[in-house]
Design a protein around this nucleic acid. Sequence first.
DNA 1: GGGATAAGATTGACTCCGCAACCAAACTAG
DNA 2: CTAGTTTGGTTGCGGAGTCAATCTTATCCC
Lengths: 151, 151
Amino acid sequence: MTAWVRLMGAHAAMTRSFNADLQASSAITVTDFEALRRLAAADGGRMRRVDLAVAVGLTASGMTRLLDGLERAGAVCKEHCSSDARVTYAAITDAGRALLHAAAESHLSALAAVFSERFSPAELDQLVELLGRLPGAEEDASSCPGAAAED
Amino acid sequence: MTAWVRLMGAHAAMTRSFNADLQASSAITVTDFEALRRLAAADGGRMRRVDLAVAVGLTASGMTRLLDGLERAGAVCKEHCSSDARVTYAAITDAGRALLHAAAESHLSALAAVFSERFSPAELDQLVELLGRLPGAEEDASSCPGAAAED
DNA sequence: GGGATAAGATTGACTCCGCAACCAAACTAG
DNA sequence: CTAGTTTGGTTGCGGAGTCAATCTTATCCC
């Protein structure tokens, strides 16, 4: 139970801190950042909205709202799938990549600082491995098998 | 960075799941639960609102709102401090203890299940220790030195 | 083919909670 | 004693994200 309490505390504190930084420097949230990062890394710079949602740990409706914001900001756009009219892709735009790049600069170094000043590389590996066993973690680079649908 | 991503994912998934359970069984959230737990464990069943806020990882305003809810539910009440008119204590009521007890039944076992089926006791210790180094964790049983004010 | 069922996506209403601004009480000087 | 500063606490406003309901398109099965 202590593990859960500490995880909650760490998440709350770090999220608040990183959100404040990102908000000030790029007007985005940590979840926005994570979504952009996933899109930028995805094949073709786009993903189905559902897949993106589970990747970043949101529900489908949460993803709709998050993408509303990013779309208003011009960072992503919708693309339709010709083979299945139900799906719409979220695709990162050039402006979105620029935004991500600008935000990454300070965010990634802040992130690295927090962890590297507290853990040795071996300990960090340990932590990553242990966290990966929890539900909802490990939605990493996998789960994109049928990513090659057309337009 | 993977550690941060996994922490976010695990937090999102587990919070949603636990919240759903607690909401259904006792009409409270995981944060409510944590606050009640802290109060029940505190000396005299009460804490200054600020101290409680940092203990559960909220801001002062978040704590005001959370306690509004618990007070409406009759689970906590306010107590004034005679030696410092600024502070109000949050004190757990008998109804609050009953609520906590009822909620703990299923919540703690769900919690134990999630962790025990994924980690050995030694690994769990490891995880607790590593998480404890992160900012915002470790707001545990310490930090209540001057808890013996009057009235 | 034609109706049930499922999957992707969106919307409305709601909760939680943070920030910034604020008030009041308490220390700290000059 | 009075003026500034700090600390505890609350409130207006707004953002983020959930759930439940809904709509549309696919798929399954007879």
